Simulated scan of single mutants.
Amino acid sequence: MNEKTLRALVEAGAVKRVRIIGDGARFHVEADTPNATVVAMTAKGAPRTWGTLDASARWVRALGIGTAQLDVSRWQPGQRGLRV
């Protein structure tokens, strides 16, 4: 789900929970809505990722969300990311 649609869901009160998930060397954001769990996506349709926790948290806060869960069970801080 792109940022514009996710922002509209937040404003409508349809987002129940947000998680910042560490996976490998990157972080991505998932949001629970009444119908499904959605992943924040780029305009091109790829999952939106961040290299640092604070960058992903700032993005979540800019959406208007004050509380998010953090899942670092698959996060590998020393792992090198792939260059695309």
Rank of each mutant, 00 (worst) to 15 (best):
G78V: 03
R17I: 01
G64R: 09
D54P: 02
R80G: 10
R48M: 12
T49H: 04
D54G: 01
E11I: 06
R7P: 01
W75C: 04
R7T: 11
T52I: 02
L70E: 06
N35H: 13
G81Q: 11
P77F: 12
T5M: 12
T37Y: 04
Q76I: 10
V60A: 06
V29C: 10
R83G: 07
G66I: 00
R83S: 12
P47M: 07
N35S: 15
L82V: 12
R26M: 05
G81V: 07
V18S: 04
A40C: 11
P47F: 00
T52W: 07
E30Y: 01
K16S: 11
G13H: 05
F27C: 06
S56M: 13
I21S: 02
T37C: 13
R61F: 07
A25K: 06
R74F: 00
Q76C: 07
D23N: 12
G51D: 10
L53E: 07
A43T: 14
T67S: 13
D71C: 11
G24P: 03
L53P: 00
A8G: 06
L6K: 05
D71Q: 06
A31Q: 01
A68Q: 11
T5E: 15
G45N: 09
I65M: 10
F27Y: 15
T37S: 15
R83A: 12
M1W: 11
A12V: 00
F27E: 05
R58C: 08
Q76P: 00
P34D: 13
A43F: 02
G51N: 10
Q69E: 15
R26T: 02
V38H: 13
G13Q: 08
A31Y: 03
A40N: 02
E30D: 13
A31M: 12
T52N: 05
S56A: 15
T52G: 04
P34E: 11
A62C: 08
A36I: 02
T42P: 08
P47N: 07
P34M: 11
I65D: 06
A57V: 07
A68N: 01
G51Y: 04
R19F: 10
R80M: 07
V29S: 05
G22F: 04
D71G: 04
L9V: 02
G64P: 06
A36H: 12
V38Q: 10
R61C: 03
V84H: 10
V15M: 09
E30V: 03
G22C: 05
E11M: 10
G22Y: 06
V39S: 06
N35R: 15
G45C: 10
